[in-house]
Amino acid sequence: MKNPYRTQKIAFFFLFLATLLIVIPVGLIVVVIIQKGFPAINWQFLSDIPRQGMRAGGIFPAIIGTIYLVTGAIIFALPIGLLAAIYLSEYSKDNLLTRLIKLAIVNLAGVPSVVYGLFGLALFVVFFKFGASIVSGSLTLGIMILPVIITTSREALESVPYSFREVSLSLGASKWQTIRHIVLPNAIPGILTGTILGLGRAAGETAPILFTVAAFYLPQLPHSIFDQAMALPYHLYVISTQVPNVDEKIRYGTAFVLLALVLFMNLVAIIIRYKFRKKKKW
């Protein structure tokens, strides 16, 4: 193994293999779901309520439910997460307490989602008496994605060069003006990345909505945010395991729609991020 060229080749091979091992399952999932799910997609499937005990009809209420939940979660989590990230990266002093807080936030991202579900049940459904409702579900999902948003936003803020802040302050700008006009605009792409990650997670999780909002079968649209709602991941779980004799096409069709919805939301965020990156002047 003295030949550095050969060592390098072997290293490259293993690195490539590792990459391939990631790409293949992802590719397979997408291919299988498209192959099996796409034939189910038609206008009725997307716009009709479920019929015949969810064995026919469409999944429109579940789509709407998921959109409500994700939107609610982002509306709740993004402002709070961003403000917390600004405080932690720009204002808080570096001491044992803030280091513990940062560590706790990072670790919260790893808490199993079913624990968030139980927490949401205790806090929002029972204690605040919101009942099983879109509000409860959104807030639970929001709390679940907060750590991701805080951590990525903090990293985005901290990656803005220190010299920009120094220049701004030296011109007589206040700390807040510096954050508002110099730091924040340059951190937006990174913050959006965190939001994308959070969005995808909120749309796909079943456990947090299980106790807080999701309806087993509710063939109508929610009238207010205090109503229960169907949601795609839970609906998928129901028709795959709880209801016998559901056509495979419908199951994979639902999975396809969920996947497409998440990808679409990601795409929107990616486009926004791209626009901001292009404006970036350094």
Binding site: S163, F164, E166, S168, L169, S170, L171, G172, N186, K280
Partner: peptide, 16 residues
């Protein structure tokens, strides 16, 4: 104070 006492840094540091 910083408005009255301006500063030019060692490296050219334009804002983005």
């Amino acid at each position: 104070l910083r408005r009255k006492v301006g500063m030019v840094f060692a490296l050219p540091l334009p804002l983005p």
